[in-house]
Nucleic acid binder design. Sequence first.
DNA 1: CATATATAGACTGACCGTCAGTCATTTATT
DNA 2: AATAAATGACTGACGGTCAGTCTATATATG
Lengths: 231, 231
Amino acid sequence: MRIVKKHQERKKEFLDTARKLFFTQGYEQTPVEAIIKKVGLSKGSFYYYFKSKEDLLDELTKVLIIHILDEVKQTVQRNDLDAVIKLNKTFAAIGSIKLENIALIKTLQKAFYDDRNIYFRYKVYQNSTDMLAPEFAKIIRQGIEEGTFHTPYPEENARMFFELSFILSEKIPKLMIEMDHFPENAEKIERELGNFQFTIERIVGADSGSIHIFDHDLLEKFLDQLAVQHV
Amino acid sequence: MRIVKKHQERKKEFLDTARKLFFTQGYEQTPVEAIIKKVGLSKGSFYYYFKSKEDLLDELTKVLIIHILDEVKQTVQRNDLDAVIKLNKTFAAIGSIKLENIALIKTLQKAFYDDRNIYFRYKVYQNSTDMLAPEFAKIIRQGIEEGTFHTPYPEENARMFFELSFILSEKIPKLMIEMDHFPENAEKIERELGNFQFTIERIVGADSGSIHIFDHDLLEKFLDQLAVQHV
DNA sequence: CATATATAGACTGACCGTCAGTCATTTATT
DNA sequence: AATAAATGACTGACGGTCAGTCTATATATG
């Protein structure tokens, strides 16, 4: 007995299923057949909704970012926050480091952060930057007006903020994965985050120590928990 | 009559051929069969020398970087140059922007800088950074001793220098490709380079305007030539 | 109002071309 | 004879195509 559904509903099923698989198995490592099987439909169906596997990827990455974009836009719109606080909130929103979600990171480490999955991450990074940087540029311009930031390149800085965030989000999971054999990575992670914060300050020309992108105590707890898991 | 050669010699033939094809067609877009055909040998031969296509990629990326590493090491060793000059020479050596070689860039644009070839570039970037950053860190430490640089993160800054260089080398070709339809990209390229220089200065804590990573007049000429080609 | 007919669009799955990788075998060198 | 170099048919996995089927709904007909 064949179950027929509305266009958008079915499409969402494909996208949701693909999202789960891409994050746990990787993009290249997920055959279209695996998506089909899980949705319970046929090959023809898949290509009825998407003109190629890559087409689905494009749609998926955009969907992934829209939620974050909404959140960031709301933050940017507010007029009761200064630029530094908005910057911190934006960094938290893009969630390069989700301190509160160890389980997720540990799952993603296996496939999402695998070298062979770089194409997927690359697409997410690209679309994120394109969609979010213009909003972030507004924050930097606000900071310049407020006198806390000093830079002749607000637009370029905005893009660079995301690019550096993504580089960071490439490094941290790698260091975490190796923590079993290299406990000193905990210290490296702290250095990387410290350096990141420091770099952002310098790039936007903010006072040293004025930007607080992560909570030091929370990070300690996080790294402790991560270490415990490996015993 | 079958031509038999020494192991290393044959291997080099495969690597050289693969290099040419990967740069002009892309890594994923180059089937092993294409490499074989050009070398003039068989499938079995290929797998006699390399245990996988990826294995060849690994070897190739390392070979690609060794020459640059030698050049950078020589620069770093010298004791007649200050840190700023060494930094400039290193940037020139990694050749993110080869101002003198338009033809090469135009060729590479088509395949090398294509999104789908990100895996190849990623591997090159990864290995480059791992192999070159330690040398570059020496330059930054020299700069700190000389009092021209001021940073608590020389090692991290060194890696970041390469990471930002690669981001730049992702952007510039994209802007160049689009110059046909967006002549204003010439200006964008200048801004990107200006921003890059400015950012490096800030990251290593050097005086504003002290670092000169590219020659302004040369860039103008370069962009003019690029524009002409499209007429 | 009930029933036949037509149309859109959701869905099927066998089939195709491409490609990385395998292996039993042959050829050349020492 | 033993070892190293080279062969090419073969396999299996994968992305993508296509001619055609099924089902719900709209429309016409008696």
